[in-house]
Amino acid sequence: MKLVEDHNMSSHIFTHLDALESESIHIMREVAAECKNPALLFSGGKDSIVMLRLAEKAFRPARFPFPLVHIDTEHNFPEVITCRDKLAADLGERLIVRSLEDSIRRGTIVIKDPDKPRNPYQSVTLLETIAEFGFDACMGGARRDEEKARAKERIFSFRDEFGQWDPKNQRPELWDVYNTRVHAGENIRVFPISNWTEMDIWEYIARENLYIPEIYYAHEREVIRRGNSVIPVSHLVQPKPGEKAEMLSVRFRTVGDMTCTAPVESTARNAQEIIEETATTRITERGATRMDDQTSEASMELRKKEGYF
């Protein structure tokens, strides 16, 4: 996209957030105009809440030309689900929820250990949902600064009929002229906020005054220390023999599967204070919070190859 920063516009300076916002709106409108049956993946997390605001900016006063879709692991924090439902209802948009439990009942997902993280299985339910509704494009809120495999992915990321990503053979993506064409059965994943960083997200949440799940802000929570992580106690995670639960002031930097999402110690009670903490943190967002990403050097790439977002 074109870069006009500090472009003095009568009353208003075009900031880097304005540039990112305009880029994202442009991407969403391309999807709406060219794809036959798109969807917006909406989890109730901060990135997808930013995506909702961008969609409002792209399409209002009309309704969104696509439904919101959530693939529910049923391992989500209740505050996130509450926020998901409230936002969809407030916006008056259609929310489709498909659960991993559906796939488990169908037998397409076989869970070995019910207490283990469910992220790896999400791809199965996602691909089944794509097939059920015939979606040809799914927009997601992944960012390139999150993870090294994501850093390699195109904004319009082509997936074959098995939902697979071929990182060695991505389509060229020139300027911002996006190729949205797919054959029947194939689809594309579109990442309108590819170029946003964690910091940009927080600055945008502050600027737009977005409502996000309370657990992103510092709160007292019962946790267990395991290795370098603090793990939230929940109906899924209880102290093992020898472990002791304690109360800590924490916040979540990401909100994924409850069994593998660790909070960070924090006292930041609003977006501005989180911006200040983000500026000085020495650990990446996923590094601090996603225990499932650390199982192997390439867990994200492997999952993406199987159809993950």
């Binding site: 600064d145 090294k148 495999a149 060695k168 991505q170």
Partner: peptide, 30 residues
């Protein structure tokens, strides 16, 4: 740091573009 794909690490080469983001007090960079 940028050669994040398995195939890149195996061969010690870059295959596709990696995007990285950083900021100094003066500018933001992609």
């Amino acid at each position: 740091l940028t050669d994040g794909l398995l195939a890149e690490r195996e061969q010690g080469i870059t295959i596709d573009v990696a995007y990285r983001y950083f900021a100094t007090p003066k500018r933001k960079f992609i």
